[in-house]
Design a protein around this nucleic acid. Sequence first.
DNA 1: GCGGATCAC
DNA 2: TATGGTGATCCGC
Length: 390
Amino acid sequence: MMEQKARITKEQLKQAQAEVDKLTCELERSRELGRVIVHVDMDAFYAAVEMRDCPELKDKPMAVGSMSMLSTSNYHARRFGVRAAMPGFIAKKLCPNLVIVPTNFDKYRAVSAQVREIFSEYDPHFMPMSLDEAYLDITEHLEQRKHWPETMRTYHICDAKTGNDADRSAAESERDELSPVLFEDSPSSSPSLSGADGKAEVFGTSAEEAVREMRFRIEQKTSLTASAGIAPNMMLAKVCSDKNKPNGQYRIPPERQVVMEFMKDLPVRKVSGVGKVTEKMLAALGIVNCDQLSQQMALLSLLFSGTSWHNFLHISLGLGSTCIERDSERKSMSTERTFGEMSDAEEQYSLCRDLCHDLAQDLQREGLKYKSLLINLMHPCQINKLTFKK
DNA sequence: GCGGATCAC
DNA sequence: TATGGTGATCCGC
């Protein structure tokens, strides 16, 4: 650190700053604020599904996963420090009463499909990131929506879904009873939802109203809550969806000044793509929030690769992708397994054969042929990975 | 082009 | 008892 500092001259910094300023100008000139991007994130998804379907779990600290690894936890468990990606046996030490429910991926997939049906009505080209998360571009939807009569923006509690109304009502009332309380301080669902006699809710034509409506429909259909972020680009929308979680939403209006103000205090770690390692490297330079990031761009352009500091510059300016790309073809398929130390050669061969067999099956399932085979055997036997590349 | 590192979920 | 699995990208060789 000290050495590097000494090696960078003031002249270099000055030149770097000039380059940063020039690129900043170009980026600023082409800033796009015309799209309305939404990031939707289901609240504690797997845990919420399990709680919905098992009332016993409602008031207990619970997590979904195994003694080896947890996928997610509910609010009660989080109070004990139980988090996603934590081994279950550690979580048990933090919270001895923790109930661990094994994952039911088929069920989560089914619920996800229900939610995605709703997404597609607001953006037929929405981009799913996982079972519980997606980006939408609702610009066109809002354009249409402006001309919609109120009836097209009105939703009834027992009538929100098309299909058999009688069955629907029964299902709804049952779900009301089962509706999970995820978080103690969670703002209750919309007033008309909790009111026993509430009949209909009319949503407005703004972006916020459209997203409120979408979240309302998700809750009506699945008894699960979602959080959302609304912003002029994907990077901002993602950060926003985290802002009022759970069961909330946040919008950054399409104005440069507001975007910059929002970025100022934002910790760099909150931005998707900035992980633990990058956070540490930046912290070592005294950079924690995005304001500091923008102040140090000249230095960063000297210390990091082109793509890295360009990315930092985009972040510091509150820029991000403004178009939701169609999910492209997969580029690789892999199988890996974690195992303990293993000195017996036969055992090692056996494991390799198993991996090959599993991967071959996966490949066959998609009828794919791959050009190259990568075999990764990392010491000390923590990761064993087979990858086929196209 | 390859393998390691990083990241998201 | 026990700390995951999959896919993508970037970077330095």
